[in-house]
């Protein structure tokens, strides 16, 4: 029996190993960071989420949409209902038609999706030298390395090495696949004023916004892990009882 389970585990690892067999192909390996949401018991840090959201709104939102999020989702970051309302109302949206058949502008509501900085992709490209800033709602799931990658990317700008030529509007980044990215380094020290006394550094901004983007991609993570622990413990106990029962039922068999 030990033998079979061993083989079973081996085959599982095989699945796992071949599943993640494709390597990223930038010039540098993405360093691992410590995140509060790591591991089975990991949770998001509400402070980091709020700061990260602040960085997103004040910097990234100029170019990047987050179309899968609604303002109401922000209550998960610890904002009150009134605060969420106020955040939503900072932007306006075209709604309608009204009873007279006219379109009208109104302040956004918590049920509205995050405002898209551009009317459409064409406009987004036109404003960014032909490059399309990707929607950020799923970005940590859509890149190898997840939050580690986003943090590395945002802090990974450097001078292009000798012999490498950059095209117009391109920048050198150690972690971008192919190392050339059409986004200028978006962050620098003292760019965003934090209210909770957290150091206003490029490194801290990158860390916070990566934290926020992870939440945006996996808002269910805390519930998922909590449920997972319960399910796992239930199955473990159940398996234990079944094993004991099996031993008892089989006790007389082998020797007879």
């Amino acid at each position: 029996m030990k033998y079979s389970i061993f083989i079973f585990l081996m085959i599982l690892t095989i699945g796992f190993a071949s599943g993640s067999a494709v390597a990223a192909e930038s010039s540098h390996k993405i360093p691992h960071q410590h995140w509060s949401f790591d591991g089975v018991f990991g949770t998001y840090d509400r402070g980091a989420l709020q700061r990260g959201f602040q960085v997103y709104t004040q910097v990234c939102a100029a170019c990047h949409s987050m179309k899968h999020l609604s303002y109401r989702n922000l209550s998960a970051l610890g904002y009150s209902e009134a605060e969420v309302k106020a955040i939503a109302a900072q932007n306006t949206v075209t709604d309608g038609p009204d009873d007279e058949g006219e379109m009208f502008e109104r302040p956004m509501k918590p049920s509205d999706k995050f405002k898209n900085p551009y009317e459409n992709d064409k406009q987004a490209r036109y404003a960014n030298n032909g490059a399309l800033p990707p929607d950020l709602s799923l970005i940590t799931k859509a890149r190898h390395g997840g939050a580690d990658y986003i943090y590395a990317l945002l802090t990974g700008y450097a001078e292009a090495p000798e012999g490498e030529t950059l095209g117009a509007g391109q920048h050198w980044n150690k972690y971008m696949p192919g190392n050339k990215i059409a986004m200028a380094a978006p962050l620098s020290d003292d760019m965003v004023g934090y209210e909770d006394g957290t150091p206003a550094t490029l490194d801290q901004y990158a860390r916070d916004v990566s934290h926020f983007l992870t939440w945006a991609a996996e808002p269910e993570m805390e519930v998922r892990k909590r449920t997972g622990i319960k399910v796992f413990i239930f199955l473990l106990i159940f398996a234990g009882i079944m094993y004991a029962t099996k031993r008892k039922i089989w006790a007389g068999v082998k020797k007879s």
Binding site: G15, F16, V40, K141, H144
Partner: peptide, 14 residues
């Protein structure tokens, strides 16, 4: 529950 995307490919979130 704990590694739901490890067996998948990130590109499928694009």
């Amino acid at each position: 529950f704990f590694a739901p995307n490890d067996l998948g490919h990130p590109d499928n979130y694009i």
